[in-house]
């Protein structure tokens, strides 16, 4: 991370924060819509992913970090996604209710 940020300016973080609040309100509003289970889940998760991405990229300063940080973050999320996918290769084809 650059330690050459000599002047303090709250502008950037506040813009990101406003976007986060906007997305929060948007996702609450959208959850009221009647678009079926899968649709609602996809929308809610997409909005959450965008929010998490904003926090990771700006608040957690990934934007200032070297490439290796981004690769590591990608590796962690890919691992988690793989675990989900392969677990559901069982549950998507099996009745457990």
């Amino acid at each position: 991370m650059n330690s050459n940020e000599q002047t303090f300016s709250p502008r950037g973080p506040i813009i990101v924060f406003s976007a986060l609040i906007f997305l929060t309100i948007a996702t609450v509003m959208l959850s009221g819509l009647d678009i079926g289970n899968i649709g609602a889940l996809i929308i809610a998760m997409s909005v959450a992913s965008v929010k998490a991405g904003l926090v990771l990229y700006f608040f957690m300063h990934l934007n200032h970090e070297p490439l290796i940080f981004k690769l590591f973050v990608a590796l962690a999320f890919v691992t988690l996604a793989t675990l989900f996918l392969l677990t559901f290769s069982d549950y998507a084809f099996r009745g457990i209710a």
């Binding site: 330690s3 940020e5 000599q6 002047t7 303090f8 300016s9 709250p10 973080p13 506040i14 990101v16 924060f17 986060l20 609040i21 929060t24 309100i25 609450v28 926090v55 700006f58 608040f59």
Partner: peptide, 24 residues
């Protein structure tokens, strides 16, 4: 929703705290 906004706001303040510290 209230709690989400509170937590997001706290994320903002902590990042401001860090930036302020860096700027002295």
């Amino acid at each position: 929703t209230t709690n989400t906004i509170i937590l997001l706001a706290s994320s903002l303040t902590v990042v401001l705290s860090l930036n302020a510290m860096r700027a002295g």
